[in-house]
Design a protein around this nucleic acid. Structure first.
Length: 576
RNA sequence: GGCUAGGUAGCUCAGCAGGUUAGAGCACGUGACUCAUAAUCACGGGGUCGGGGGUUCGAGUCCCCCCCUCGCCA
């Protein structure tokens, strides 16, 4: 019995995420959380929406709504889709919550008191017509290097040259197109990460069991070029956590907010506090997950994210926590393991939110139930390298694995039993060599499955689970109760009873991957016994002779070629 | 240009403290079975492990060079 804190990278608020986002963080995190719960561990699984920043303000303006209202609505939309995919968050929070505002300001204050925050003055473009400062990438102009007329202030997309907004010829606002810009002096806070470089490096290098993908990205940022740079943690915006507050160790930050990447990871903690608020718990109840001085010592904390999020989770957020812990007051839990993922590509190119390319979460649910997506995405998770979604692969994988191997197993044994013995587990017969051999094989495979799940080796766990399903079909095929029935009814009864117990076992083992089908299987077997198969002999005799069941409908219908072709066409275009 | 990861059967991938005839799933072929969602099970064909050198008794597995893909950074 252990305590596991699990967080998934928090999705940005301005729209519905695509399947690549889902498989890179929320879905594998959910798999892990469900598995650990099934094993009887205490789990706190946290996610949230990341709501601050310029993109949210602009999206709200485009929708003609106040930004707070827009975020509240989009949060509900994303929460609904998460439920649709059966993501089992203990809490799905909001980075715009009061809890996050308080915590973010608290962390900033302590960092300031520790001398880890510097004030810097700099010049930034202010758009008079938009009445706002413009982030680098929201300024467009002519590239001084290649003459491309739509270069962005951070980089020219045409010649890839890195730019400073002031380099641009004829700069204009990307929001309104206005050229009525002026450079204004503005003051910002910087997190002095540079001074924490050695602490961060020591911490990273102590994590010898992390995926190379995670540590190599972190070390690269630590050491490349001039090494880790101090990072601006405030912005000239209205929508965010106010940077000037009572007790702040600085002045003159009125009208400024913390940068979205400063408050977003703090939301992991805040969302746990939101969980406590929403469930009538006390501060101590959430602090025992995050405060090592308040009982979080025995917590194992695992983060899930796509590779683009790694720098923030290996450098900026740890820098914040190291700095605050240094103050000697509250001691905050740092991550124990970061599971990072590569990208999922779509049919020969990239998924793209901005271009609307690929399949988005709401669209996916509108054409097929969540288990189909969960199974395909997890069994093809981009762990060792980028992987690719194609409709053909999706169709054959899902039809073969779910419909033929698992679904048909359940179908054939329940229907066979119903026609020969009726809808209750039949009595009689004794185990022989074939059954003993099955116990040995399943024991080996289930122990391997457990190991892969604990190591968060998602694809390998999926492959092992599938092999466990196949073992059931092999058993039935060689036992052939339909033939045995003709000469030895009792023996056929034993074989049937065993196979129906296998069905319960499959429901328990597969629950982290395909929770809906798992629930359907248990309901059909009229049992709520989800006990984990520590001992296979026990697991395969859990349902006794005489136990009634219901023959379920088809568990997974197959995807037809015509459907696949239609979807292929429908999703090849651009989402509006 | 620098760096990370990768280039293994038609497809998706595993393998690598270096060691007998290189593995899995899908696809393909043959057979078995008929309980089942035209499902299942068995067997089989198929790879000069990106290319070239080197170390070694022996190299997808280590070293060097080159080519290609993806990403990050400059």
């Amino acid at each position: 019995m252990a305590r596991h804190l699990i967080t998934s990278a928090i999705p940005y608020i301005n729209g519905i995420k695509h399947l690549g986002n889902l498989v890179g963080s929320q879905l594998p995190a959910d798999l892990f959380a469900r598995y650990l719960r099934a094993r009887g561990h205490e789990v706190m699984f946290i996610c949230a929406t990341d709501e601050h920043g310029t993109p949210a303000e602009l999206a709200a303006a485009k929708a003609g709504k106040p930004v707070a209202e827009y975020c509240a609505e989009m949060h509900e939309v994303q929460a609904g889709i998460a439920r649709g995919f059966r993501l089992s968050f203990d809490h799905f929070g909001r980075s715009s919550s009061a809890r996050n505002r308080v915590l973010t300001q608290y962390f900033a204050r302590v960092l300031g008191e520790q001398g880890l925050i510097a004030e810097k003055s700099e010049k930034q473009f202010f758009s008079i017509d938009d009445n706002r400062f413009l982030p680098d990438r929201y300024i467009e102009g002519t590239c001084p290097n290649c003459g491309y007329e739509r270069a962005r202030g951070d980089q020219c997309e045409n010649c890839t040259k890195q730019l400073d907004p002031t380099d641009l010829i004829n700069p204009r606002s990307a929001i309104s197109g206005s050229t009525n810009l002026e450079l204004r002096e503005t003051k910002h806070l910087y997190l002095r990460q540079k001074s924490l470089r050695d602490d961060i490096r020591n911490w990273i290098t102590s994590k010898t069991d992390w995926p190379v993908l995670t540590t190599s990205i972190a070390l690269k940022w630590l050491d490349d070029g001039d090494g880790l740079q101090d990072r601006g943690i405030t912005r000239d915006l209205k929508w965010g956590v106010p940077a000037q507050f009572e007790g702040a160790p600085w002045h003159g930050m009125e009208g400024k907010v913390f940068y979205v990447w400063f408050d977003a990871p703090i939301e992991y903690i805040a969302a746990t506090a939101e969980w406590a608020d929403a469930n009538g718990k006390t501060d101590a109840d959430w602090q025992r997950w995050w405060r090592t001085d308040e009982g979080a010592d025995d917590v194992t904390y695992t983060e899930f994210m796509g590779k683009d999020n790694v720098p923030f989770h290996t450098l900026s957020f740890p820098a914040t926590l190291i700095g605050v812990n240094r103050a000697g007051g509250a001691q905050w839990k740092m991550v124990d393991y970061i599971k990072s993922f590569n990208y999922l590509n779509y049919d020969g190119g990239q998924f793209s939110t901005s271009q609307g390319r690929g399949v988005f979460m709401d669209q996916a649910l509108s054409i097929l139930p969540p288990d189909y997506w969960r199974w395909w995405l997890l069994s093809h998770a981009p762990e060792s390298a980028d992987s690719e979604f194609t409709w053909e692969n999706f169709q054959t994988s899902v039809n073969k694995d779910l419909a033929d191997v698992l679904g048909n197993f359940v179908s054939r044994i329940t229907k066979f039993c119903r026609s020969k013995f009726g809808e209750a587990l039949p009595e009689g017969g004794t185990w022989g060599e074939r059954e003993e051999a099955l116990v040995i094989e399943l024991t080996t495979r289930i122990r391997a499955y457990e190991a892969f799940m604990e190591e968060k080796e998602v694809r390998k766990a999926a492959a092992e689970l599938r092999a466990i399903w196949v073992a059931g079909n092999e058993y039935l095929q060689s036992a052939a109760p339909w033939t045995v029935f003709k000469t030895d009814t009792a023996q056929a009864a034993m074989q049937t009873r065993l196979a129906l117990n296998l069905t319960r076992l499959y429901a328990v083992l597969a629950e982290p991957f395909i929770p809906d089908a798992s629930a359907t299987m248990l309901a059909a077997l009229k049992t709520e016994d989800r006990s984990w198969p520590d001992d296979l002999r026990t697991a395969l005799t859990t349902l006794p002779a005489g136990h009634a069941f219901e023959t379920p409908d088809v568990l997974f219908r197959k995807i037809a070629d015509e459907e696949r072709e239609e979807w292929q066409k429908r999703f090849s275009g651009i989402r509006s």
